[in-house]
């Protein structure tokens, strides 16, 4: 189309203002939830110990969502995070029960999750199979391996907890905020990775328009492989954090983390199709999600209705987001 006169400043600023709002949308949701939560609970919510609890809980969802986020940037999806999470727990249980040093146990379980991510990455990058299907298959395989190795009961992991507490003693309140430190630290490192390595722009290019990425000389295979592998690593770390927080777990404990990991990414404003987004926003998304659940618990909302509410919230959110996008484009 011929551009005779591109309608200038007024239009342009309005458009950009709307797009900023869109990328900060997680912040808006978070702020709203925070205020609602404080009001509804008559201040109980804003109690520092409750807030800390929320943040700690959010750490586990957050770190899994981080790995999911990178995969989604490239236009893919990781459905196996729940099962791989469980696999990590299984490996931890098995090792600790066999008397392995907790540090080594963590290493082994991370090795396991990284391998799963690697396999996913290899299959996705080298065949034309859609990520949905590949990670679906991995989900089933990982879950079954985990359950076979350890069985379905929860195991206590006091050695793990003690080891981490010991090593975090040097920091005031170290043992307490360990999960939070790991989470925020990981997000920070990943954001450095995105900004200062070629993989950042490459990831977004693949998600935004894979064909253009190929024509531009992006090594699509390598990037996809890397992204799924990092995803596996994040999932493993999440499992370790969960075991630390609640002192042990069973291999099925990973399943409830799949959907929230995706929801956190979306609430944070990343498009499900990839090509744009920001890992810091996903922090907000994870916290917002945790606040929602926390709020509902405090209000003693029937746990079964909680799922309904989450469903409704997610739907309305995505709807509002897409309408906003349309508005900012028409501007």
């Amino acid at each position: 189309m011929k551009a005779i006169k591109v309608l200038l400043s007024a239009e342009r600023t309005r458009k950009q203002a709307l797009s900023i709002f869109r990328s900060g949308s997680g912040l808006v949701v978070f702020a709203v939830l925070f205020i609602v939560a404080t009001l509804v609970t008559g201040g109980t919510f804003a109690n520092p110990s409750n807030l800390l609890e929320v943040l700690l809980r959010a750490s586990v969802i957050g770190i899994v969502a981080l790995g999911q986020n990178l995969v989604i940037f490239t236009g893919g999806i990781e459905l196996s995070v729940g099962s791989v999470f469980g696999l990590a727990i299984g490996i931890l249980s098995f090792c600790l029960k066999s008397g392995v040093d907790p540090r080594l146990a963590i290493l082994y379980s991370l090795a396991g999750t990284v391998s799963c991510g690697l396999i996913n990455g290899l299959i996705v990058s080298r065949t034309k199979m859609p990520p949905f299907v590949v990670t679906l298959g991995m989900m089933m395989i990982a879950q079954s391996i985990a359950l076979t190795v350890v069985g379905a009961q929860a195991e206590d992991m006091p050695q793990l907890v003690r080891m981490i507490q010991e090593s975090m003693r040097f920091l005031p309140a170290g043992p307490l905020v360990f999960p939070l430190l790991v989470w925020i630290g990981s997000v920070f490192i990943i954001s450095l990775f995105i900004t200062f390595t070629k993989y950042g722009p490459n990831m977004f290019a693949i998600g935004g328009k894979e064909m253009a990425a190929i024509y531009s000389g992006v090594n699509v295979r390598q990037v996809k492989l890397l992204v799924y592998t990092i995803g596996g690593l994040c999932t493993g770390i999440g499992a370790v954090l969960l075991c630390y927080r609640i002192g042990g777990a069973n291999p099925l404990a990973g399943q409830p983390f799949l959907l929230p990991s995706i929801a956190a990414v979306i609430i944070g404003g990343t498009s499900l199709y990839g090509g744009e987004g920001n890992v810091y926003n996903t922090i907000i998304g994870a916290i917002a999600l945790t606040i929602l659940v926390n709020l509902m618990n405090i209000m003693r909302v029937n746990p079964f209705i909680q799922d309904v509410v989450m469903g409704v919230v997610l739907l309305s959110f995505v709807f509002a987001l897409s309408k906003l996008k349309k508005l900012s484009e028409r501007a």
Partner: peptide
């Protein structure tokens, strides 16, 4: 009508059905 990607829309439906079933 709301142009929500099917993946997400049906996750919402899934959760709502789940909630109703439990309720």
């Amino acid at each position: 009508y709301m142009k929500i990607p099917p993946f997400i829309a049906t996750i919402g439906g899934m959760w709502i059905a789940y909630g109703i079933a439990f309720f």
